[in-house]
């Protein structure tokens, strides 16, 4: 990498730094302070050292929420990335059909997250919901996301896939459209099948956008809050209590600021590690190296 010619340019970033200081750094410092104290009220706190960290790390509900979170994010990636690529491959390439497909695809992305939760509550209700009633009454399979953990998981996954696969599809579509026609012509001359065209032309050319899709989907699903909060509220039991839901329960509902702060920092450190790994991966994509 070349040396930065003039570091004075960084002075222009100062206004952003001031904003970030007020919106992120000062709150973060406060969280660090809270994490080592038992807070009873303003000015009434007792120093407890690392006890909250110990308590949180040995809390089986946090560990369960963590594994649940990784399972959720893993499933999201396994389902959404291939599905998004499939949709992108099947989309019309030009003309009014392409525009219509793009707009239709983008619709779920435009809906506020709380509304999405509400839509899916009604949609999957066993008594009046279109999907819920069909599964229960027409297919005769008992399905109730408020009673069965498995049904709750299926519903949350369906909602998540419905909500966010369009983003992956749009990114993959833009990657596909950026491939020059000459590559396809060359593949046809070589007599390549559709599968090998996909494997050796389209997939490598989509690597950049798919990396971005992968990162965005991982981070978003790892931090998911609003939709499962509205849809299941973390239940039934704790079966869909993801990390952020559990954190809010500790910090805001039980008002345990100390343990909540320790939990936040643990969460933050996990997110920071993945952000760093993904940032490195993106840097390589930017330089055109293999990932």
């Amino acid at each position: 990498m070349e040396k930065w010619p003039d570091n004075k340019a960084w002075l222009l970033v100062l206004p952003v730094f001031v904003i970030v200081a007020f919106s992120a750094i000062i709150p973060l410092l406060t969280v660090i302070n809270y994490s080592v104290q038992d807070i009873f009220g303003p000015g009434q706190s007792v120093f407890v050292g690392v006890d909250w960290f110990r308590e949180m790390l040995q809390d089986y509900r946090l560990r369960e929420a963590l594994w649940r979170q990784f399972l959720f994010s893993g499933l999201v990636l396994i389902i959404e990335i291939p599905l998004g690529v499939l949709i992108a491959l099947a989309m019309p390439k030009r003309g009014w059909k392409a525009s219509a497909a793009l707009v239709t695809l983008a619709l779920p992305l435009l809906i506020p997250w709380n509304t999405i939760g509400t839509i899916w509550i009604i949609f999957t209700r066993p008594d009046i919901g279109l999907l819920g009633a069909v599964i229960n009454n027409l297919l005769g399979i008992p399905f109730d996301h408020t009673a069965s953990p498995l049904d709750a998981w299926i519903t949350v996954m369906l909602m998540e896939v419905w909500h966010w696969t369009p983003l992956v599809a749009l990114l993959a579509y833009s990657g596909l459209r950026a491939i020059p026609e000459a590559y396809y012509q060359a593949a046809r001359i070589d007599g390549a099948s559709a599968w090998s065209t996909f494997l050796y032309v389209q997939l490598p050319k989509m690597r950049g956008v798919l990396t971005i899709a992968f990162l965005l989907r991982f981070m978003d699903s790892f931090l998911i809050y609003a939709e499962p909060f509205v849809l299941t509220g973390g239940g039934p039991g704790n079966s869909t209590t993801f990390l952020s839901l559990y954190l809010v329960k500790i910090a805001l509902l039980q008002f345990d600021l100390g343990p909540g702060a320790a939990f936040s920092l643990i969460y933050f450190i996990i997110v920071l590690l993945f952000s760093f790994i993904f940032y490195q991966a993106l840097q390589r994509v930017g330089k055109g190296e293999t990932v």
Partner: peptide, 15 residues
Amino acid sequence: LKWMEWTLPTAIFCG
């Protein structure tokens, strides 16, 4: 800055 609840150890850490 009372609401930030500074303590000596965290001040040393952040500082």
